[in-house]
Amino acid sequence: MTDIVKLILDLLVFPGGLFAIFFGLFLIGIDRKIAARLQRRIGPPIYQPFIDLVKLIRKEMVVPDTAHVQAFRLAPLLGFAGMMAAVLLIPITGVYQGFGHSGDLLVLLYLLSLPAIALMIGGSASSSPFGAIGFSREMVMMMSYELPLLLVLVTVALKVGLATGGIATFSLSEIVQFQLENGALLFDYTMLPALLAFLVFIPGNMGVVPFDIPEAETEIVEGPILEYSGAGLALFKLMTSLKMVVVLGLAITLFFPTPMGENFLLNLLWFFLKCLVLMVISITVVRTSTGRVRMDQAFKFYLKYPTVLALISLILTLLQG
């Protein structure tokens, strides 16, 4: 009984749910502020995403006449729910153990594709031609960034698995435990290419410039989320903020989960700091300093560089083991 209560609390209040939403929205607010400062603007206040949410919830939700109503209404919920579940699997060292047991890395991989699928369903259910274009682009984007992601995950799993005497371990807690004992994978030269590949994967998955092709505002006016307003749009914004936490948290878990000490709050702050630095490197700076690339360019880019980098890591790991 207490297990269930604890699980529900985990899901709704502390590492998942409310806390993760606050965490993600705060990160996005800081991202917007830093992006503005990099462009020599003043920028919105850091709490701007919260204000946007309150506003969106107070607005009316318009459903187009020609849309498939159920799919249109359920798509944002699907993406949001998937990300809520995914946050639960991310361990914060020294603060939270992570929910999963043996195969949570694989579960996380599947959950990570849910936001893109939700966008696809929403875009195609809205019956808008821009939504349909967004759908096909989202699909191509997903196909191009999933391969390097999978290779990186397999590399880390193999590395930890071979070192602990098995074949490959897909358990996040074992990966964290291994790194606590043998030092973070960030400082292992064989893992550096994989880390780079993951850094390149982040902007593609988060859909920011230069890889915001599915939601290109200036070409296809935000594509899949074009027809969403009010609460639906708010759910998509929440989904994006949770995805930010999941993707950054996953990178930290895989490569640098080292805690700051025993203190609970200090560890939480340390995790936040790591997220912040990673976000600035892989999202903010990238999106303020580049322009959008074409679909075929992005596809070729992802199949060339991150894939090769991840493969190098994989081969090095296999040679070592």
Binding site: R32, A36, Q39, R40, R41, I42, G43, P44, P45, Q48, I51, D52, K55, K59, V62, E217, T218, V221, E222, I225, L226, E227, Y228, S229, L233
Partner: peptide, 21 residues
């Protein structure tokens, strides 16, 4: 243009009429 930045008021240009205020 950064000089007239209206994002400081919380404004954002949006592409879709469904998002507009």
């Amino acid at each position: 243009i950064p000089r007239y930045d209206i994002e400081r008021l919380g404004c954002k240009y949006c592409g879709s009429p469904k998002h507009a205020d």
